[in-house]
Simulated scan of single mutants.
Amino acid sequence: MAMTEVFMGNSKQYTDEFRAEAVKQVIERGFTVVDVASRIGIPKHTLYGWVQAAKKTVPAPGATVAPSDSAEIRRLKAELRRVTEERDIPKKSRRVLCQGVRAKYAFMRAHAREFRLVAMCRVLGVQRSGYYAWLRHGASAREREDQRLLGLIKHHWLASGTVYGYRKITLDLREAGEQCSRHRVLRLMRAEGLRAQVGYGRKPRHRGGPAGVVANVLNRDFGPQAPNKVWVTDITYIRTYEGWLFLAAVMDLYSRQIVGWATASTMTSDLVLQALVAAAWRRKPGPGVMVHSDQGCQFTSSDWQSFLKAHRMVPSMSRRGNCHDNAVAESFFSVLKKERIKRRIYPTRAMAASDVFDYIEMFYNPIRRHGSAGGLSPVEFERRYAQSGD
């Protein structure tokens, strides 16, 4: 098989799509070469070469001509600004509209750079003289500390992609040296309208049934004691205006790290094989690693079974119609759709694949905290395991 031959070679290969997405993180998103290389697990000099090659093909930007700022345009801009403020201020201040003037003053101070003071006074129904008097009096030490802490909370919440709730934000703050309780973080986040992403509702599923083509060797033992002992894999689909984009992912159960993944416009055995080959390239496991899947036709194909046998991997399959036998893989797809896809439809398959790369390689593996990993990211959890020398 072609894929087997590529894997057995000495050189580590990367697809054109992988290279393009890695370069995009540096050129378009502003990450450093060292940061991106460490997150996705490639040598920094390799990524630097990709970036330099890509820059040579980018045309120099042309000069832009600023529009004339006539009196009519200035008048229209002022009118647009007034209408926009009268629309946006009530939306952001709805939590303080029915509260006292101190709460309104605090909102005005927090949004002083976003809205004009005269507009906020008009919408909130307060006087500028009262606001200035409140500023001169000053906030209490507790209020000042809450504002400082809220700034840190917003930073970590945005850094997580607006995904984390108060528990994970509290872990981030404590790791940064802050002393605060999760109840205080919850209060501040709730007052500011910051919340974790909420998942989809559960659908009823059929359970039980006869044994599959391969025995359920895993048997819901989702807690291996070391990396590269048990991998789980599954397929999901993502909506685009060009049609479905299918995603296959391979996860290491020890750390919950996605060790291999692939996308395609069709759901064939080649898709799952590409994901498994990517995992083998990245991890280079020894013989005996268990690979657990459901009983989909892609995993019962002769190509899949032959690859496992050729590389001395142990196959395992869920019982027919029992999704809980592969619950961890399905949980990852639920998290992906909850935290990143969020029920939207991508314009193209390429844009969807690019967003998947950004989520898995730039956030999920190196940064996102996991309760099963002691509140650490998968990469950090495995790094500490390697340092322990077990």
Rank of each mutant, 00 (worst) to 15 (best):
H45A: 15
T348V: 07
T162I: 09
V36W: 01
G288Y: 07
V123C: 08
L308Y: 00
F246K: 03
R319G: 15
A280G: 03
R184I: 09
S265F: 02
G193V: 11
Q257I: 10
V23Q: 00
V214C: 07
T348Q: 05
L80D: 10
V198L: 09
F299G: 03
K168Y: 10
S306R: 15
A327H: 07
T263A: 11
R340S: 15
F307K: 02
A278D: 14
G9R: 12
Y48K: 14
L47R: 02
K55E: 13
G151W: 00
A373G: 00
F222Q: 09
I367Y: 01
D16P: 02
V250C: 06
V26D: 05
T162F: 05
R82Q: 15
R220N: 06
R29N: 12
A60D: 08
S70E: 05
S334Q: 11
K77D: 13
K337L: 07
W281A: 02
S269W: 00
V272N: 07
T15E: 07
T300R: 13
V259T: 05
A133S: 13
A264Q: 11
F115Q: 00
I89H: 02
W157F: 03
G260W: 03
A139G: 13
G177V: 06
W304F: 15
G161S: 04
R95M: 04
A249L: 10
S318D: 13
A71T: 10
D303W: 00
R190L: 04
Y359A: 08
S316W: 04
A327R: 06
